[in-house]
Computed example of a mutant assay.
Amino acid sequence: MAEIQESGDKKGKGSKQKKMSIRVDFTPMVDMNMLLITFFMLCTSLSKPQTMEISMPSNDKNITEEQQNKVKASQALTLLLDADNKLYYYEGEPDYDNYASLKETTYEADGLRKILLRKNADAVKKVRELKEKKARLEITEEECKKQIAEVKSGKNTPTVIIKPTDRSTYKNLVDALDEMQICSIGKYVIVDVAEGDQVLLDHYHQGSDAAHV
């Protein structure tokens, strides 16, 4: 509410000029602001954080490296994330005596993604079909999520073991995890690089350097 205060020169006999000062009272606006804040807090839905499901290995120290790598050879894929955005991989059980068993690829669509799609082709096809059914309203969103989870965790789907080295970056790990989602990989874990993996990398680099000399 605004108040108008009049002030005149009472000493001057012939002066008819009056000065007016206006003061605005903002006290009622405080209540209005509180009502608006409360309204928006109750009516606005908070944004939900986007999460990514990650299968982490057990913290049991009795589990040996051999048990961690005991995955069906035809379905296992191990990724070694190294320095300078380098990405190496081997399929099946590691052959630490033969550095040539280690192969190099990239994080691009024609690199890691191509490899994952090849190994997970059946699951990718089924997931695409389920999403199309949901788009046609043949199944609900909950049913779609449930069936997709079952497809991803099927017996014939690959298991990806992601091993970032100390020389890799956080972005490398995020890029690798993104490819897991894009290629519908449901079984993957993040573990530390084994001593044998580091030796394999060192021998690979030595062999590559020797080949370029």
Rank of each mutant, 00 (worst) to 15 (best):
R136F: 08
Y88C: 00
S21D: 13
E66L: 09
P57I: 05
A100I: 09
I139G: 04
K146V: 09
E65L: 09
K61W: 07
Q50P: 02
N59H: 14
A83C: 15
R23K: 15
A121G: 01
K131P: 03
E53W: 02
I22E: 09
L116G: 01
L35K: 13
A121C: 04
L137T: 08
S153F: 02
D31N: 14
K103R: 08
N85R: 11
L102H: 03
C144M: 09
L137S: 09
T105S: 14
K16N: 09
Y88V: 00
K18G: 05
P57S: 05
L102M: 04
A149N: 07
V71L: 12
Y88D: 04
G111N: 01
R136W: 05
L130V: 01
K145D: 11
V124T: 10
K152G: 01
M52P: 00
E91S: 12
M32C: 08
T78M: 05
T44F: 06
M41D: 14
K119M: 08
E108C: 03
Y99S: 08
Y96M: 03
M41E: 14
T140K: 02
S101F: 04
Q67A: 07
P57W: 06
G154R: 04
I115G: 02
K145R: 08
T51E: 15
F26D: 07
V71S: 06
D25G: 02
R118P: 02
K72M: 08
P49V: 06
K119D: 00
N120W: 02
L42E: 11
G12T: 05
A100D: 14
L36H: 07
K145V: 05
K61C: 09
K119G: 00
D9P: 12
T38A: 15
P28R: 03
Q68G: 07
K152H: 03
K133R: 13
A109K: 11
